[in-house]
Simulated scan of single mutants.
Amino acid sequence: MDIRQLRYFVGVVEAGSFTKAAALLNVAQSALSLHVRQLEEGFGTQLLIRDRTGVSVTASGARLLERARKILKEIQLTEAELTNTAASPSGEVTIGIPSGAARVLSGPLIEAVRSELPRVSLKMIEGMTGPLEEWMGAGRLNLAILYRTADTVGRMTILAREEFCLVVPPGEPPFEDSIALSDLHAFPLAVPMRNNNVRRSVADVVANHGCVLDVRFEVDSLSTIINMVAEGKAYSILTPSAIQKETASGQVRTVKIVDPVIIRSVVLAVNPKDERSPAVSAVRTIISNVVKRLIESHAWPAMAPDGAL
């Protein structure tokens, strides 16, 4: 048994057939068949069941598949650790980004990593903040961009500060440039679920000022919330970055919330086990630089960490 045989065996199982695996692995089908047959002869047991529809694993094959995946993963991690240096970072970095921030940050970040870190493979997971925080806590992410109120930032790096606004259907009131927090009760809202940090940021300020909100819909999908507002089914409370495209095209309007202004921090969190990873550190630096450029060019309607526009 050698590593190549394990890779081919896993490739055949995951592809579901020798033909598909040969195309994906860029190996002749006859060679794949030979290596798998040598594995079976070496172990003295059948690993795959072959038929006209493809392949499936036997009980022995299932055990080998589980072990082979672990072995190959360890080899990949070892290669990454031995070749990953500060001067030439390499490896895989997984980052979680909230849907709102992803709308302005994903494209520039992917381009910057591709250009500046050619040996780093970036995996980007987009979602609402609640699930992202859970995945970060479970160690599934190396980095995560999260939202925090001013007193809950802790040791995380502040990338930007954003102000919330009332998102209004086209042609609907209010028609002023700003609205007091105490007047928001007049508008039926579609907002994220209660475990969402965006929701908590707004709810804390509203509660502290003795105000109420008319929450009609709780939806854990940014695109669905925006569509509801554009179709006149509800209003929402979001940051300008989340609805830039829709605002520019006239699908929705924004009205600044005042008395008081609601501000949240956009922060960068790192998994403690990855603090010393050259690849993770390099991506952290790029994220900070990209966000700074976006704010300075007004591509991201937010304030710098020091409060400057």
Rank of each mutant, 00 (worst) to 15 (best):
L143M: 12
H209N: 08
V57I: 13
I263V: 12
Q5Y: 00
I226F: 04
S201A: 12
V104P: 05
D204G: 02
I97T: 04
P173C: 10
V205K: 06
P174E: 06
L309N: 01
E111N: 13
A203P: 01
V280Y: 02
V10I: 08
R114L: 12
S121Y: 14
T224S: 12
P278H: 03
G250Y: 07
V120R: 11
A230I: 06
T94G: 08
R52P: 02
S17R: 03
S223D: 15
D259R: 04
G171P: 05
E176S: 13
C211H: 07
K20I: 04
V280F: 06
T247V: 15
I71K: 09
P305D: 06
T45V: 15
A15H: 05
S30G: 13
L146C: 06
S33L: 12
H298N: 15
A248V: 10
S115M: 11
F175H: 13
P272G: 14
R199V: 04
L34T: 08
S121K: 15
R52Q: 13
V36E: 10
R253V: 09
N197I: 03
G139H: 07
R276Y: 14
A86P: 00
V261L: 10
V12M: 04
P169W: 03
F187V: 03
D204Q: 04
T19E: 12
L309R: 03
L159Y: 01
V104A: 12
R114W: 07
S30C: 08
I97A: 05
I257W: 01
D51H: 07
E14T: 10
P272I: 11
L64N: 12
R199K: 02
D306E: 01
G16H: 11
K123G: 13
E172S: 14
V57P: 04
L117A: 12
P272M: 12
L117I: 13
P192S: 07
V93H: 03
A112N: 05
A15V: 06
G171F: 07
A150G: 01
E162G: 11
M303C: 09
S249W: 07
G107W: 07
T247E: 14
V206F: 03
P305E: 08
I158L: 00
K256Y: 04
L132Q: 08
K73G: 14
L6V: 02
N142I: 08
V57K: 11
A31W: 01
N197D: 11
L294T: 05
V258E: 10
L213C: 06
L166R: 09
L132I: 13
I95E: 02
P260F: 05
A203N: 02
E162A: 13
V283N: 01
V13T: 02
G127S: 13
L294S: 04
K233E: 06
P272Y: 08
A144Y: 03
V27P: 04
F187L: 06
G42R: 15
D2T: 06
G250F: 11
A101M: 14
R114M: 13
D274N: 13
V167P: 05
T83K: 00
T94D: 09
M1T: 02
C165G: 14
A160N: 04
T285W: 00
E66M: 14
Q29N: 04
A23V: 07
E74T: 06
P108F: 09
H209R: 03
L25N: 06
G11S: 09
E176L: 12
G137Y: 03
R216A: 12
S265M: 08
G96E: 05
K123R: 14
A22T: 01
T157W: 00
S115G: 11
